[in-house]
Computed example of a mutant assay.
Amino acid sequence: MSVAAESTDIRPFRIEVPENQLTELRRRIEATRWPSKELVTDRSQGVQLATLQALARYWMTEYDWRRCEARLDALPQFTTEIDGVDIHFVHVRSQHENALPLIMTHGWPGSVVELLETVGPLTDPTAHGGSPEDAFHLVLPSLPGYGFSGEPTGLGWGNGRIASAWAELMNRLDYPRYVAQGGDVGAAVTDAMGRQAPAGLLGIHVSLLAGAIGIKDHLPKETGPERAAMDALNVFTTDGFGYFLEQSTRPQTIGYSLLDSPIGLAAWMLDHDTDSYYKISSAFLDGHPAGNLTREHIIDNIMMYWLTGTGASAARWYWEFGREIAGGQAPPPVRVPVGFTSFPGEIWAAPRSWVETVYPDPAYFNEVDRGGHFAAWEEPDLFSAEMRAAFAPLR
């Protein structure tokens, strides 16, 4: 077999974390140097001390990584080298013959963990209130530099390059027709796929209007929903922008802390957006999770960064994205049908007029009554129903 042929191989993958890594993790949590309590009663100074200490207690005394490891290892996992980077992905084929292939991309501070609750509803709809015609073959890749994917060793792994890699991945899996979905970073990558329109891509769905950041001054703001969305976007770009600014300008600097302190990593990941922060805080302080955003699953997701040491490499996507924004060049139009679901707890819940500004004449738009930034995680059944509805005309 030639070297070129070997480089395109799809290899089975299993997670087997040595016990000494888990022992060292617990030692580091126990040795945490805690700051004094914040001087406010909300999150305006950052992640609150009580939340992090409750998280640390659970992580130290109750959490069991082996349950997550077994859950992931029970699913078909693979790696394949694309453009010099090993890409890790979960690939679950539906039992239904005419299932539509769907590649879904997670974001930051997420991982494939945030999408696992949708595997059953999407691949086996008959067991979740759907019909065989609703079935998907599901591909869940880990972004380059995230989780169990390899770290890029050179520059240029922005949205366009990842989008091209995903098209190659679907080609290697022998899917001549497929659709794509993404939120957060995944929304930006999926948007790029729609603009590249590789052969076989039938349509896309996104749940975050990432393009709104670059055209904020040109978005409608006359109606109540438009003003509310603009207020939320302004809050994000002034008060909630800290992690974004640091990662888009100095990912290496924050990376030292993220790889050295598990509690520092947890705090950085929790300090993302107001809605999900308070939902996560409630899970640890009050025992009231939002849907499947449970204590266990929250730590599962943090572990995907800690065990793989990818705090810095994941942050580098923002550095690439920051340079794309600074370039100021208008992207090419999207050349496939676009679906969009507006979840009320999203960082900014985009109204239809905003979606139409970025994606003229969207093929599907819906505003739902629950769910936030981690919609697939919080509300997997609702999220799966949205995927069925958005992609039904493309089957």
Rank of each mutant, 00 (worst) to 15 (best):
E246I: 14
P141N: 10
D275E: 11
W306K: 08
V85S: 03
K221P: 00
P393Y: 00
A283N: 02
A54P: 06
L382R: 04
L75T: 00
G200Q: 06
L155T: 14
W65F: 09
H96N: 12
D369T: 15
S207C: 15
H297N: 13
G130S: 03
G242M: 02
V338W: 01
A4N: 06
Q45N: 08
H96F: 14
R43W: 12
L39Q: 13
F13K: 05
G158E: 10
V189M: 07
R388V: 14
T79Y: 03
D83S: 10
A50C: 02
S7F: 10
A350I: 07
S257I: 11
R14N: 09
G120I: 00
P76V: 01
T61M: 11
E69I: 12
A389V: 00
F244P: 02
P35T: 09
M387C: 13
R57T: 13
L394C: 05
E386W: 01
W65K: 09
A290W: 03
W34T: 09
M1N: 10
W306D: 10
E222G: 13
P144S: 08
T237G: 06
W319H: 12
R352V: 07
D73F: 05
Q21P: 01
V206H: 04
V92L: 05
S248H: 14
G328N: 01
E367R: 14
S164K: 13
H373C: 02
Y63N: 08
G145A: 09
A210Y: 04
E367K: 12
G345L: 01
V368W: 06
A50S: 15
I15S: 06
E346A: 15
E324P: 06
H288E: 12
A330F: 02
F241V: 14
P262K: 03
I254R: 10
L258Y: 02
K216E: 09
H297T: 15
A188R: 12
F383E: 01
E6L: 15
A390V: 09
L293I: 06
Y364K: 10
H218A: 13
F241H: 14
G264Y: 02
E114V: 08
I302W: 12
V185Y: 11
V185D: 07
V3E: 13
Q329C: 08
D300N: 13
A232W: 03
G322C: 02
I29S: 04
G46H: 11
R172K: 08
R11A: 12
P332R: 11
